[in-house]
């Protein structure tokens, strides 16, 4: 009895494993093609059947591709934009989260619900007026125009507020009794306890910021300010970039999010599973 149950479980496990392996193979197929393609000589990229081992392996494609596509400036711009937006959210979201979690000012509830409502508001339905506003500010084709309008993360406020709520108020009160100012409490008491949450927030904001395409498309005017997604998309139009170069640049673009994932996998998956609440 016990033995047959054990057997049955093992066989269902085997079936599960087989299905999972098949699905994983399908999932990884495009990535494998992209990565191997980025190391191939041009004429092997579209070989059918797919040539999984490049012959010869050409790591030189990477520096060549970055140079031929003039990609270093866009990468730098993306780093600037992403790190600015991360920094803005780390400061402002934790500040606001603290305000919402530990103070009881009038209109707090309505204000917080208002912020929550922003999580569902996509840029797509406000891009036209937002462009007009940014134009009015004279911010078209400037770093501030590229960074500020899409910086604030409503999810970030929610997330930090939930986290800071779990910090016992006794700490805060104790610091207050010691005569610390509210801002000092925030800096010296709240922030040190928020490090794990700040890491998660930074990674989540960084991922979406790195990925942003529509707003830069609208607001950037010249190559000086182009971000990596813009320059990447440009490779598919205009003059033709060789395919193995396109693939190499694509791999370069996915390395930062991959590193972030390796670094903060648990936090990312946890916060995705919480997006239900938002």
């Amino acid at each position: 009895m016990a033995r047959s149950k054990w057997l049955r479980r093992q066989s269902t496990n085997l079936v599960r494993l087989a299905v999972l392996l098949a699905l994983a193979a399908v999932t990884l197929f495009p990535l494998a093609w992209i990565v191997t393609g980025s190391l191939k000589p041009l004429e092997q990229v579209f070989a059918i059947p797919v040539q999984w081992v490049p012959d010869p392996i050409q790591p030189q494609n990477y520096p060549d591709a970055i140079q031929a596509t003039d990609f270093s400036r866009p990468l730098l711009n993306s780093v600037i934009v992403t790190s600015s937006q991360v920094a803005i959210n780390l400061v402002l979201c934790s500040l606001a989260g603290f305000g919402f979690a530990k103070y009881r000012f009038r209109g707090r509830e309505q204000l917080f619900l208002g912020v929550l409502a922003m999580t569902l508001l996509p840029l797509q339905v406000i891009m036209i007026p937002l462009f007009l506003i940014v134009k009015g500010l004279g911010w078209v084709n400037t770093y501030q125009g590229l960074i500020l309008p899409t910086a604030a993360s409503a999810f970030g406020v929610f997330f930090m507020r939930q986290y800071i709520s779990t910090i016992p108020s006794d700490y805060v009160d104790a610091a207050r009794v010691d005569g610390a100012s509210e801002l000092t409490i925030f800096r010296k008491v709240v922030i040190p306890q928020c490090i794990p949450a700040l890491v998660t927030l930074g990674v989540m904001v960084g991922l979406s910021s790195w990925d942003e395409f529509l707003w830069p498309l609208i607001v950037v005017g010249g190559r000086e300010l182009a971000t990596a997604p813009l320059a990447m998309a440009q490779l598919r139009s205009l003059y033709q970039t060789p395919f193995h170069f396109i693939l190499a640049v694509a791999v370069v673009m996915v390395i930062p999010p991959l590193l972030a994932f390796l670094f903060a996998q648990r936090q990312i998956i946890q916060s995705v599973s919480q997006t239900g609440i938002k």
Binding site: L111, M118, L121, I126, I128
Partner: peptide
Amino acid sequence: ATNESTGLLFTLPIIFLFVAFNLLPTVYA
């Protein structure tokens, strides 16, 4: 005793961004 409205002050910077770049555009649209 705390000055509870300090909390409002803390939320204002990001609220300002939301108003300027989310709320205002919806009305302006």
